[in-house]
Write a protein that binds this DNA or RNA. Structure first.
Length: 555
RNA sequence: GCGCCCAUAGCUCAGUUGGAUAGAGCACCAGACUACGAAUCUGGGGGUCAGAGGUUCGAAUCCUCUUGGGCGCGCCA
């Protein structure tokens, strides 16, 4: 809808220029928006205001020129007004809006999909939790955001890959192995000391039990250094299996699991460091090797290889991002916990050091989640091992509610997750509110069927019977759906979908309450209204699907 | 100390990328089932958009400063 009108205005500008009425030395950007106030029409543009200075004419005068040059061949514009300082307000013909319903009916679940991505490859890397313990709610939020964003990008035509980066090299895995080894010895009656920074969680003892079952007491009394690898591998595999299970239960699936260790095994860390040297973005100093990240705006340069010859975390990250770039992605998106924000400049420096534009990597930060129970925050401490796991939450409130609630805030903003509200079946719980709208429509169709009324075919529908204000509102919301998808995808803001859904669901509830869909006295109207309901149901379903939330027929 | 993010109704948050009279939900008050699902709906009050300057036709939105919060600043990961 916006696009069509933009083209019409574009044509009008061109015509005005040919007549000499406008100079158009610089091409103005035509933005159309849906005014908040209904008195300002269906769509409004501010071009006349933005052009005023360059043209040296008062904006209202420019607006007049534009309007005079508009040729509306398809006949979609009902009225144009100049308002205020120079807004041009368009009222579209009712019929134009209503035809959206036919489009939805034709396209079904395809409605709203676009191809702005043109099949280009993008990657979303998210969760990427250390395989040293269960996923907690923060990971859950990252998973919900990443998965929804990936869905959105796919919906606008990108070829999306979802990737999980496994931090299976380095200190954490060693600590995991040590912790596991200690618990194992304790199970066998050896009172060995537990590593100081070890993982204290209950789950380690459980894994130790599994280890005992698998290997018996073969490693009893064996010093850790002689068997660190087997404990590390066992622990890592057990944790990864748990992570996969939890993600599965949360309806998140990855296309690719990428191992950090593999970067060391195939020498790509070495090779990337070599390449950095050749490109002149690393240097040696104080016995260490440094990345010249200040060349790209970082506060200070960063160590890649330590004095003792070990790689830093950044070293594998350099190799990892080089690997990502080599896979031909047009755009990389990393979803990180907000506490890692200080890391962004150096990774963007890496990207640039390899000759790619800074913005080929976009880091989306996800803020903290606090869990509330009975209105009180549940204390969480990673050190003490008392964090609320994703599994707990999913078992408690269900995957749908959890996913939806994780997406009810901008990812940038901290989130209070109230377990009681998430279970509540009321207006306060947004996921029920939206799902109920869908179930309600399903119920109407069940009722219609019981009365022998079939789901209407478009040929049988008289759209002009949909003339109530509530019906107009709904139709306009449905027409705005494709633009919402595109904006949410391109701005990496999946939360817009939840707001849209709540809006649409609200309109549906209002309409439902005020008017009867099935009217035994008026068959034609019943058919038209059922047709409208069918399209609302389709859009609710597709939007929920983008969020990875189910659209139930009954609740 | 330096850097990043943030400050919008009593509370939790949106705000169409600089547009017209700043919006929802909760809470509070008053109402609606002989009804296709009341898990719903209708109405009401409630604001110096933290503060002060600036940019311009126009600012919650952009710039500077101040105040108040969160996070990050290791040859840890």
């Amino acid at each position: 809808m916006k696009q069509t009108l933009t083209d019409i205005i574009q044509e009008a500008l061109k015509r005005a220029q040919q007549q000499g009425a406008l100079k158009l030395e610089t091409q103005p950007v035509i933005t159309l928006e849906i005014p908040k106030d209904k008195n300002h029409g269906d769509l409004a543009t501010t071009v006349a205001l933005t052009m005023a200075k360059a043209e040296g004419k008062p904006p209202r005068k420019i607006a007049e020129i534009i309007i005079a040059n508009i040729q509306d061949e398809e006949g979609i514009i009902g009225r144009t007004d100049i308002a205020g300082p120079g807004f041009i307000n368009f009222v579209l013909k009712q019929d134009r809006w209503r035809r959206t319903l036919f489009a939805i009916d034709d396209q079904g679940q395809e409605y709203g999909l676009k191809d702005v991505g043109r099949g280009e490859k993008v990657q979303v890397e998210f969760v990427s939790a250390n395989p040293t313990g269960p996923l907690h709610v923060g990971h859950g939020r990252g998973a919900a955001v990443g998965d929804a964003l990936a869905n959105l990008l796919a919906a606008v035509g990108y070829d999306v890959q979802r990737e999980f980066y496994i931090n299976d090299a380095g200190r954490q895995v060693r600590l995991l192995a040590q912790s596991l080894h200690a618990r194992y010895q304790q199970l066998l009656g050896n009172n060995v000391p537990f590593p100081e920074d070890g993982y204290h969680g209950e789950y380690i003892a459980e894994v130790a039990q599994e280890f005992l079952k698998a290997h018996g007491n073969v490693y009893r009394d064996k010093p850790f250094e002689e068997c660190s690898e087997i404990f590390g591998d066992f622990g890592k595999e057990a944790m990864l299996a748990d992570i996969r299970t939890d993600l599965e239960a949360f309806n998140v699936r990855f296309d690719h699991w990428f191992s950090e260790k593999s970067l060391l095994a195939d020498n790509s860390v070495q090779r990337s460091i070599e390449e950095l040297k050749q490109r002149g973005f690393s240097y040696e100093q104080d016995g260490a090797l440094w990345l010249k990240s200040t060349a790209f705006g970082d506060d200070k340069d960063r160590v890649i290889v330590k004095k003792d010859g070990d790689y830093t975390y950044l070293a594998t990250d350099i190799a990892y991002h080089r690997n990502k770039l080599s896979r031909g992605f047009r755009q990389l998106v990393n979803i990180w916990g907000a506490d890692h924000h200080g890391y962004i400049p150096r990774v963007q420096a890496v990207i640039q050091a390899f000759g790619h534009p800074k913005d080929s990597l976009h880091v989306l930060l996800v803020q903290l989640v606090s869990i509330l129970r009975h209105g009180q925050p549940v204390p969480m401490s990673k050190r003490a091992g008392t964090f609320v796991t994703l599994r707990d939450v999913v078992q408690d409130v269900g995957a749908d509610a959890a996913r939806y609630i994780f997406l009810t805030r901008r990812s940038d903003s901290p989130l209070d997750f109230d377990l009681d509200i998430a279970k509540e079946q009321s207006r306060e719980n947004p996921v029920y509110y939206v799902q109920y709208a869908h179930a309600r429509i399903a119920s109407i169709f069940r009722e219609a069927e019981a009365r022998g009324i079939a789901v209407p075919k478009r040929e049988a529908v008289q759209l002009d019977l949909l003339d109530l204000a509530e019906e107009q509102n709904i139709i306009k919301a449905l027409a705005a759906y494709p633009e919402m998808i595109e904006e949410a995808a391109l701005s990496y803001e999946p939360h817009r979908v939840t707001y849209y859904l709540q809006d649409l669901a609200g309109m549906l509830h209002t309409y439902y309450f005020k008017h009867r869909i099935i009217d035994a006295e008026n068959e034609a109207r019943t058919v038209a209204r059922l047709f409208l309901m069918k399209q609302v149901k389709t859009v609710l379903q597709s939007a929920l699907k983008l969020l990875g939330v189910s659209a139930p027929e009954k609740m």
